[in-house]
Design a protein around this nucleic acid. Sequence first.
DNA 1: CTGAAAGCGCTTACAG
DNA 2: CTGAAAGCGCTTACAG
Lengths: 346, 346
Amino acid sequence: MSNAPHPRSDSPTRRVTAAMVAAEAGVSTATVSLVVNGKTAGRVSAANEQRVREAIDRLGYVLDSVGSSLARGVSSTIILVAPDISNPFFAQLISGVRQVLATDYHLLLSVSDPGQRPSLTEVSRLFGQRPAGLILHAPDPEFLAGVPAHVPVVAVDAPDAPETVPAVNFDVSQGARLIAEHLHSRGHRTIAYLDAATGTATLRVRREAFMAAATSLGMTVLQHLPVATTIDIAAAGASFTAAWPQMHAAQASAVVCATDTQAYGVLQEARAAGLEVPRDLAVTGFDDLPFSASMNPGLTSINLAADAVGVQAATMLRNLLSDTSIEQRQLIWPSRLVVRGSSALD
Amino acid sequence: MSNAPHPRSDSPTRRVTAAMVAAEAGVSTATVSLVVNGKTAGRVSAANEQRVREAIDRLGYVLDSVGSSLARGVSSTIILVAPDISNPFFAQLISGVRQVLATDYHLLLSVSDPGQRPSLTEVSRLFGQRPAGLILHAPDPEFLAGVPAHVPVVAVDAPDAPETVPAVNFDVSQGARLIAEHLHSRGHRTIAYLDAATGTATLRVRREAFMAAATSLGMTVLQHLPVATTIDIAAAGASFTAAWPQMHAAQASAVVCATDTQAYGVLQEARAAGLEVPRDLAVTGFDDLPFSASMNPGLTSINLAADAVGVQAATMLRNLLSDTSIEQRQLIWPSRLVVRGSSALD
DNA sequence: CTGAAAGCGCTTACAG
DNA sequence: CTGAAAGCGCTTACAG
């Protein structure tokens, strides 16, 4: 920050423009622009480039991206649209995206309130920003359809995205099967499924894949017992508490939860009800949040490689932006079962 | 989305501009601009306003915020700068900010990698966006000093912010005292403090306030035992494990952690070491993350009203933006002790 | 109440 | 290799 003073209390120094740099260096603004954008090869003499760089340093010039975006017709901002950043798993995704895109683009997040989808005005304003590209986490089909044709887009965690949309998904079907097989191998035959009531595609796939796998293994899955809840610890716990008597009567020996967050609530309330996990009741989650290993007992879950997927999605988008033809339009990342104490006696 | 089709596969329809709307409505672009910005009072006839609105609907016009920002000299984007969004507590803060600002401004998040501070280039690009204002979560002094004088700023969770900077802080000193008093009242006399090694001001304040309170209550706090760690479950657990023999020898009966995240690691490793919490060792956290109630035993912690603080900060910024003089430049929000099983026998 | 015009800061053919 | 100039889409005094 040494040579670019930003006097917070001094007189409101005027913004330094390319024109001022040009005057200082004795060149045109066209030349300044070429230097700033690294397009000097064969277009700017070494001497002039040097002069411009010195002038930039002297004046503390910073490219105005608003002017730049208007002239180029597109900004260098990539917007990551997420329905819910309270999911800690999302931080990992971002970290992966940053690794690939942070150098050349400005990464911004646009979030809606948890569980809610972005409104029409929010979407319009989004495109009014002229983003260079979009990474959409778990977009609903309407949002996807509303993206203007000329904006490069990559979807993440969107198993229902049309094949024409580049996407990187987690293999949650496989994860759901792994859970079913794991519980079956531990002798469970009657099981409850706590679904998440957000309508996201990944959650539908998780449920359907689990049902299919459990059924084909000859297990019984209780219907709507417990009742689906939002992805919230307290709501999930309450739903479990309400359903437990019936589950118990039906001789259910395990609760499979659509998300780790919900499983935390079930663990908590099962304990409050005096149940011993996993002896009296096995519990499993999905997502393998960083906190799941710290539960007591640890929560058996499905690990999703969020950072790897972030890297993949960002790489795909970068290729799209540089017109590199991408080989595969949709990638799928394997899931991994992590067995912990909540489903396995030591 | 009905009357504003975004043909994803059709021919690349040209962006609809204010000039096209003006032509369609038979008025000037100046009039279109006034209507779009709701500045019609006494400046646009009802008839013309009506015509313009119809033309906008017919053509599916959306204000281009890049052009608008350039003309006005400032965008309608408010950027929330956060060092680490993996902190779930951050989602609550955002929710509060959104409640106040989402209608009139576009809220975007700029994140750096966990624990790292934003680089100079990132900061420059930030201001190249011409944000209407900034909300800074736990900014370091250098960043704060680098904010151009004309950009309205509100800091959050920045107990070291100069008095000239509007800020909303949590009373973490009070929280630290509450922890000390609670443990003292439970009979603890020798205590370990697991600090967080990120250099954020709030963490320094937590530690200093705790040390002062504990000392004045006549308690002994072991020095650098365990060794400070990043805000990471595994790192904290490992640090605890390494320090436990010495802590035990020193007859420490409690570990006070700078953050809940670290406390999770301690709980986990204490359990692995065969310790019973809280009988053999009490553990406390700080932040009261949503997961802390789900630990077993539940984690005693300090609850910070993140959403309330988000609302406050956003309100302050909105007042700053509308030239309303704000009464108080710095607000402080009380902390609340939440006692759970990790420090209290049933 | 209305519109022509200047201007925001930059980029990019274009002519030299 | 270089610069004058047009243009990106909008807003805002200004003159009427």
